[in-house]
Design a protein around this nucleic acid. Structure first.
Lengths: 344, 344
DNA sequence: CCTATGTTTGAAAGCCCTTCCATAGAACAT
DNA sequence: ATGTTCTATGGAAGGGCTTTCAAACATAGG
């Protein structure tokens, strides 16, 4: 039916071993035979059978990525980094979109199916403890992105550093009364961002008022949502406490809700209330948000690099990289005089 | 090293054929032996080797999707439909993010590597004419999503119908002077949307004024961008013609730019200018845009179904499905009195 | 009880490749 | 010319599975 190395061997009057050697650029083939084989291969429009190769090589050149689809903006940008790097290395990427823990587990199972993939990237979701042992035993390479487990390589964002920078930026702009709209404390990033926010206020001699902090209690997406931000700010405004002149918001998507709530109340951003948020997803640009930018593309790249290293050296010590977010100043904090909307 | 059916066969005192039959739920195995084999398999924690299976079955249960990353919002939602359907069918999905024609071609090549995937989904990008013959010969199943070629199955959005509905909505709201901000005419959807816009005006006895139509000349992303919308509207406002009371904008992302341009000029939406756009990506919700909604998730589902049909019946006649976009009324057209921001 | 029919089973063949091993031949040294 | 060392090459083995084939066994019918 379709062309195999046997066809090429016959046509070129060589053995299949030689064909394989030519196709894999192995040494010890005269340039004459090499030429001949290549010509025939091209003539027959030969395409290697990936699975047969994988079976023989015991390597699939394929990775899988388990990704929560709901983290939309974040993952898509990391994914680009992953993809681009992978392509240059000749790897393929299998996507597993998970929306809950159960699915994560199912996909982890699948990833362990022998030979299917050379390694797995797990994004933004906790690695289930009960699989630790199994992954360890089977030495299935695993890299965690935007999540953490002491036994596996991980790449994360330094939430502490980011929250500190954000808060300090507001302080530097002269704000004395700064509030925070946070996501659910069930989420580790939310906890870390809150802690550093408080510390930074203290370190700068500013009071830490619990009344100025709104914490989401929403289940859905751990409160990292527009609705959560909206409701959080509405709730806050109803508290009747003096409205801070600035807010640190734990994600861009929440900030959009916050913006809407402030608008409804007739409060202007940044004139009445300055906003700094976190993530710098595509959206942030559209809303002119000053925010803490995560190097998502780079994180994707690094994730792949780490994975390759892990594959090549399964016994190397576990590493954990923290990316420091950088401040992107747009209009919402009031620091920027010019209208930033036109930026690329 | 790792557990194979041979290990199971030995341990369970049966032949490998029997093991395979049990594992594949084939008929003609006594429930006794079946039980025994299953027990042993479980005990040894057997995982089938996907590639060996694929090699023997001549079927990989894997599809590839070639996707332009820049269509972000659109593709991600379609992708969810694809993914979810695929998962229930036990298929895997390989993602190929392409940013230009060259990459598309490279990935098409890869997809043709025998056995690698059972079929390929091509998103939003033209299928290169020079590959038609090859795909046809090799019978590599191909389904086009949001793009079209007469020789392959395709799933599209009915741009004509969508543009008509959008325009009629504005007309129904009493607007007599309606403009359009369009993307580059290099893009087929842009051409189709424009044509129907004009036709609808005519059919309703309204004048078609070229002066009221802005066409993007931008290369990048065929003018489907925020910047393009912004510049388009700024340019329009400088023409000095009377500003229409309503605009049909060819995409949500452009509409966001349009909104910003109007805001700069002090024009309010929807009081001074009503806006209806196209796509209904996540963003549209955040900006309260009235827009033509594409059933993206469903398109993904259908794409997979079509693919499966094609795989199972390679000689079925080519089909082409057009999804009719539906109008989602939010705030930007002025029809909706209530503030819609809170919608889920 | 024997034949005919059907069911269950083991094992070989095949899927397509890579890699190892043995051999033939060339090149070189003596 | 003979022996030695290398290089080039063909082909078998092996990777782990499915499927086919033939044999073994069971059941039923006469």
């Amino acid at each position: 039916m379709s062309v195999t190395i046997y066809d090429i061997a016959r046509e070129a009057n060589v053995g299949i071993g030689t064909v394989s050697r030519v196709l894999n650029n192995s040494a010890n083939v005269t340039s004459e035979t090499r030429e001949r084989v290549i010509t025939v291969a091209r003539k027959l429009n030969y395409q290697p059978h990936a699975f047969a190769q994988a079976l023989a090589r015991k390597r699939s050149n394929t990775l899988s990525a388990i990704i929560p689809f709901f983290t939309n903006y974040f993952f898509i940008e990391v994914l680009q980094g992953v993809q681009e790097t992978l392509t240059t290395l000749g790897y393929d990427l299998i996507i597993h979109g998970a929306n809950n823990k159960l699915q994560v587990e199912e996909y982890l199972q699948r990833s362990m199916r022998k030979g299917r993939v050379d390694g797995t990237l797990l994004f933004s979701m906790e690695f289930p403890e009960q699989y630790v042992e199994e992954f360890y035993q089977k030495k299935t390479p695993l890299v965690l992105v935007d999540t953490f487990h002491p036994k596996f390589d991980s790449i994360r964002v330094d939430n502490a550093s980011g929250a500190t920078t954000a808060t300090e930026h507001l302080i530097a702009l002269g704000h004395k009364n700064i509030g925070m709209v946070n996501a659910s404390l069930k989420s580790a990033p939310a906890r870390e961002r809150l802690a550093s926010f408080k510390q930074t206020l203290e370190r700068n001699g500013l009071p830490v008022l619990e009344a100025n902090i709104v914490t989401s209690t929403e289940e859905k997406n751990d409160g990292f949502s527009r609705e959560s931000g909206f409701r959080g700010m509405v709730e806050f405004l109803e508290r009747g406490v003096p409205v801070p002149t600035a807010f640190f918001v734990s994600s861009d998507i929440q900030a959009i809700g916050v913006l809407a709530a402030l608008r409804e109340r007739g409060l202007r951003v940044p004139e009445d209330v300055a906003i700094v948020s976190f993530d710098d997803v595509e959206l942030a640009k559209n809303f002119d948000l000053t925010t803490m930018s995560q190097p998502m593309f780079k994180m994707g790249e690094l994730a792949v690099k780490k994975m390759i290293e892990r594959i090549e050296n399964p016994n190397a010590p576990v590493t954990s990289v923290n990316f420091k977010p950088s401040l992107v100043v747009r209009a919402s904090c009031g620091a920027n005089k010019k209208y930033v909307f036109h930026e690329q």
